[in-house]
Every structure is written in structure tokens, then in C-alpha cells.
Design a protein around this nucleic acid. Structure first.
Length: 555
RNA sequence: UGGCCUAUGGUGUAACUGGCAACACGUCUGGUUUUGGUCCAGAAGAGUCCAGGUUCGAGCCCUGGUAGGCCAACCA
């Protein structure tokens, strides 16, 4: 017997398994806490797969909680899109979606408790003076003159803040911790601020709102989150996270940080993505070039591919730059199993079978997916005039060993059809080839080939008589620079001018008439394509998801 | 004149917690193939940031460096 290979655990799984073994927790509770101020992107997918995946693996639970403590930025529109994206990825959150705003009352009570413990105070300092007193990482902060107010005065002021007696920015509530801490977040951080703004859920009930630091950890605690996972930049917040929980004597959730996803040629800053949308550099949040989940989905990536991708990139504490090849491999792997094969000709040129009678038609049997027998077969009409791809013909091709395709006197198989031999071509005055002529060998019908001929090249084709036209949007990376984190000029200078090429002269085999929005196909020998929502009843539009691997084109 | 985190092939991660560095992607060979796809077989590619130390033995531990990331929004 072979030793069962021990599954290697990432550092978070190790922590969880230890906690479970030690009996620290009977089961785990995680949460995915997006701020509803934008669309989810591929980086969020990593966090979603982590949190929901962990709950799945360890029979725990994962909440969806909207971190909505800043009314000026948050909108219900985003709540809806976020839910949709998580569902698309195939995850279910525990119970109803939660909101930090659900806990505003409780949070307020906690703040009062802190004041009563003399662990928080109201500061009247204007922002400028406030920041000056805070010091720098190298110099300790100095106390505000308001730091030593009485509990009664603080309580009264806080109540009046809540009652709306003050203007935005006039006063804040600060936790009283340690002004000389080398960690800036411990230098009496602001925990409540005045914002006369309408909240997407609580409306005008409140004019004071807790800051991230005062809302996040306590919300975790209220939900009895055992493992609160967030990205590396929150590492410095952890002492504050723990301090508040301890000071308030509430359920001790624990924060653990992991590295966020960095993907080559990709940007995941919400601000920058918004800039692309608003500057019309892309067509919208769901432009198939966008790294948003809505964009990726529209492009044709499957949720299985994304989940697999999240799986193979792993979870660690070190920053890295992920090769896009990993993502592309994930989709190809998934689509290879699922997508039916069809013939699509991106750059059509007429091929005329001169020894094929004008009116003769034959139906050819084509396999839908060689990887999946249950995908069945379909019929394709074979006629005298066909379209093949211009790139499959060369007037003066290299040696047959280097060129498997068509050229004068060369033979190829038209897949699922006959072997043909090129007998000539017609060139226009402008030097452009207009038509290719060939003769077919009647003994080579696919499946009934008695000729014994072997040809190296196999081409896709579409009957001119039955072809349907379509538009294909060929997408490429949005940026030309691999590491977009380190560009110091305007990131828009790095936009790839060729990130979208529209090809509207594409012809497709007639079976595609039945294609529906959202369907993915493999155009044989070319790539994977998804039917876009811009398609109409009688005109299909496809997005190129990704090309096929092509070992030959590289040489 | 600070604090915290991190460092393993080209890329992403492993290494049963001290036992001669593994997997995936990518690259290159060859085979199969009615997709130059898939699949199959194989190869190259790191001696684990550097220097010391502990140890029979260090990628894992210790010390000191170096490099990168993060922290001074009433953002999250």
C-alpha cells in the first residue's frame, strides 16, 4: 500500500485545524465583508473562495456582510451586483446578508461603554491640528487639549453629536490608547465621525458613523466570526482590532492577514477601474476586458475556472505577481471539457471545389466534443463553395514539414468532410487572393475513407450557401505593462491600444443559429468564444474568451 | 529617527515542522490525433536573498545584514 499523500495545508488551514483540534472552536465561522461601493473583481474572487471555501471544507459557516459604514460612497446597486457575483461563483452565504449598519445601535452602545470606561473621548480639534498632533512614524504624537475631558462631558458631547448638533468634521470620538505607539493606528484613532449624509439602508437615522476600525472587528464579534481573514495592508490594524474587542469584553474574533492577488497586466483598484469606465476607456463595468467578475463572466470565463484558479494560486503572506497563464490555463481546462466545437471562420476566403457539382449537397456528421461523447453530433452541409480561413492558405508555403495547411498542389482534409487538393487560385489586381480552387477525392469521405491517404493538415470550413455572419470581439490584455503596481506615470498611459479588435466579417456554420446568449463554443483550432448579450435575434456577437494554446504560432 | 510583515526554479505554491527541495503553470523534445487543441512520454530549469552561528544534519532554529511590501483619510 502506498502512503496516503498528506494534503498540504496553507497557513490559514493550519491555524484552523489547530484551533479545531485544540477545541478552541467547535466549528468555524468566516465572513466575506465587501464595502458596497463598487463591483467585485478577480481579487475579491480570491477572498470569496477563501472564506466560503474554508467554511465548506470545515463544515463551518460563512456570512456575507456588507461593510457599509460610509454612507457617502455606498449604494444598494452595488449590494445587488455583489450578491449576484457571489452566487455566480457558486457560494451561498449563511442566512440573510448582514450589514454593519444592522449593528449601528449596538456599536453606539459600545462607544458609550468605552467613554464610560474613560477609554474614549471627544476631540474638537480641526483636522489639520489633529493630524499635526498625531506625529509621524518616527515621532510620537502629542495629546490633544481635549484628551482629558470628563466622562460626563464626553457622554454629553457624544449624545449631542448623535443628535445632530454639530457640523461635519466639527468633532470626533477617539479611542484613548497610546499616543507614542510606533503603530499609528494606536495613537488614539478616530472611532466615530459626523457625516450628515443619507445612508443607503438607515436613511437619515444617523448623522454619526463608526469608522472601519470601530465597526469591523465588533461586527465580526457580534457574528461570532472565529477567523476574520483580510489582506496584508490591515496587518497594522490588528492590534487595534484586538484592543477594542478586549476593552469591550466581547467575543474574541481573531484577524489573520493574507496577500491580496496581483495579476499581470491587470489593475484591481476600484478607483482606477472607475476611471476606466467613466473615461470611456472601456464600455462599462462589465466590459469583457475588465477584471471585474461581471466583465470576466461576460468574457466567457466560467465560475469553475475562477474557483480552480483561486485554488492553484494558493494563500500566503507574501506579495507576488501571478502569471496570467495560470488564469488562462484554468479556463482552457474547464472549457475544453464543456464547450462544444463548431466551425467559425474569422477571415473567410472562398474555396471552390471544382469537381463538385453545382447543386450537390451532402450532410457531414460532426462530433460536438471529442472530450465528451455525450455531447453528441451534428450535421453540416457540404457544398461546392466553401469558406476557409485565409490564414490556412499560402501561395508559396514553406516545406510541408513546416506547413500543414493548404498551398498550390498541397492536400488537406476538410474536417468531417473530404480530402481536397489545391489546384489553383485567383488573385486580384491588387495582389490579394480572391478565390482558391481545389478538387476533392470522393474516396475520402470522413468515416468512409477508402483511399488510405494520410494528410497532415485538417481545416475548418463553412458552406457558403448556409453560412451565417457574425461579429467577433477579439480581446487582449487591457494593459501593456505586466506589473501595473509599479508604474509611476498615469496608469492610462499603459492601456493596450489593441485590447479590442472587432471583426464583423466572421462566418459560422449554420448550427450556430440556435446559439443563445451565454453559450460558450470552441471555434476549432482557434479559441473559445461566448455569445454576448449584444447579440440580436438574427445577428450573433461573440466575445473571444481565450485562444487555444498554439505551439506552432510561437515558432 | 520608528514599527509590523515577507524572502524557495521564469511564474504561483509544497516540503509530514531539523533528514539530501516537490507539484502546477510556462518552456523545450518526442509520440498519438480528422483541432499545430486535448491526451501520453520525457527534458531543461532553484540548492532555498547574503554572512555568520547551533546541530551528525538547516529551506525550516538563532544573530546580523540586504531587498521588497505595509503604516501618518473624519476611506475600507
Amino acid at each position: 500500500m502506498e502512503e496516503p499523500k498528506k494534503e498540504s495545508l496553507n497557513f490559514i488551514k493550519q491555524i484552523i485545524e489547530k484551533d479545531l483540534e485544540d477545541g478552541k472552536h467547535a466549528s468555524i465561522q468566516t465572513r466575506f465583508p465587501p464595502e458596497p461601493n463598487g463591483y467585485l473583481h478577480i481579487g475579491h474572487a480570491k477572498a470569496i473562495c477563501l472564506n466560503f471555501g474554508l467554511a465548506e471544507k470545515y463544515n463551518g459557516k460563512c456570512n456575507l456582510r456588507f461593510d457599509d459604514t460610509n454612507p457617502e460612497k455606498e449604494k444598494t446597486e452595488y449590494v445587488d451586483s455583489i450578491k449576484k457575483d457571489i452566487t455566480w461563483l457558486g457560494f451561498d452565504w449563511e442566512g440573510d446578508a448582514r450589514y454593519s449598519s444592522d449593528y449601528f445601535d449596538e456599536l453606539y452602545t459600545m462607544a458609550v461603554k468605552l467613554i464610560e470606561k474613560s477609554a474614549a473621548y471627544i476631540d474638537d480639534l480641526p483636522a489639520e491640528e489633529f493630524n499635526a498632533l498625531r506625529g509621524t512614524p518616527n515621532e510620537p504624537g502629542k495629546p490633544s487639549p481635549y484628551r482629558s475631558r470628563s466622562i460626563e462631558e464626553n457622554l454629553d458631547l457624544f449624545k449631542r453629536m448623535k443628535a445632530g448638533e454639530f457640523e461635519n468634521g466639527e468633532r470626533v470620538l477617539r479611542a484613548k490608547i497610546d499616543l507614542s505607539s510606533p503603530n499609528m493606528h494606536m495613537r488614539d484613532p478616530i472611532i466615530y465621525r459626523i457625516k450628515h449624509a443619507t445612508h443607503h439602508r438607515t436613511g437619515d437615522t444617523w448623522c454619526i458613523y463608526p469608522t472601519y476600525d470601530f465597526a469591523h472587528g465588533q461586527s465580526d464579534s457580534i457574528e461570532k466570526v472565529t477567523h476574520s481573514l483580510c489582506t496584508l495592508e490591515f496587518e497594522v490594524h490588528r492590534p487595534l482590532y484586538s484592543w477594542l474587542i478586549k476593552e469591550l469584553g466581547i467575543y474574541p474574533s481573531e484577524q489573520t492577514e493574507f496577500a491580496r492577488l496581483n495579476l499581470e497586466y491587470t489593475i484591481v483598484s476600484k478607483r482606477k477601474l472607475r476611471e476606466l469606465v467613466e473615461g470611456n476607456h472601456v464600455t462599462g463595468w462589465d466590459d469583457p476586458r475588465m477584471p471585474t467578475l461581471s466583465g470576466i463572466r461576460r468574457r466567457g470565463y466560467t465560475s469553475e475556472a475562477i474557483r480552480n484558479f483561486a485554488d492553484i494560486i494558493g494563500v500566503v503572506k507574501r506579495n507576488s505577481m501571478t502569471d496570467v497563464a495560470l488564469l488562462e490555463h484554468s479556463v482552457r481546462e474547464d472549457l475544453n471539457k464543456k464547450a462544444n466545437r463548431v466551425f467559425g471562420i474569422l477571415d473567410p476566403i472562398k474555396l471552390i471545389i471544382t469537381n463538385w457539382p453545382e447543386e450537390k449537397e451532402e450532410m457531414m456528421m460532426a462530433k460536438n466534443n471529442p472530450e465528451d461523447g455525450s455531447a453528441g453530433t451534428r450535421e453540416m452541409p457540404f457544398t461546392r463553395e466553401l469558406y476557409i480561413d485565409r490564414g490556412d492558405f499560402k501561395e508559396d508555403p514553406p516545406s510541408p514539414k513546416k506547413w500543414y495547411r493548404l498551398g498550390p498542389d498541397r492536400e488537406v482534409r476538410l474536417k468531417f468532410g473530404y480530402i481536397i487538393k489545391c489546384t489553383g487560385f485567383k488573385k486580384g489586381d491588387d495582389g490579394v487572393i480572391e478565390e482558391i480552387y481545389a478538387e476533392y477525392d470522393p474516396d475520402t469521405r470522413s468515416g468512409q475513407d477508402t483511399s488510405g491517404k494520410k494528410v497532415k493538415g485538417t481545416l475548418g470550413w463553412v458552406s457558403v450557401t448556409y453560412a451565417i455572419g457574425a461579429e467577433v470581439r477579439m480581446y487582449d490584455r487591457l494593459f501593456t505593462t505586466a506589473n501595473m503596481n509599479t508604474v509611476d506615470d498615469d496608469f492610462k498611459n499603459h492601456l493596450n491600444p489593441d485590447s479590442l479588435k472587432i471583426n464583423s466579417k466572421v462566418v459560422l456554420e449554420p448550427s450556430l443559429k440556435k446559439a443563445k446568449v451565454g453559450d460558450s463554443f470552441q471555434f476549432e483550432r482557434i479559441g473559445y468564444f461566448r455569445v454576448d448579450e449584444d447579440s440580436t435575434e438574427d445577428h450573433l456577437t461573440f466575445n473571444r474568451t481565450v485562444t487555444l494554446r498554439d505551439n506552432w504560432a510561437k515558432k
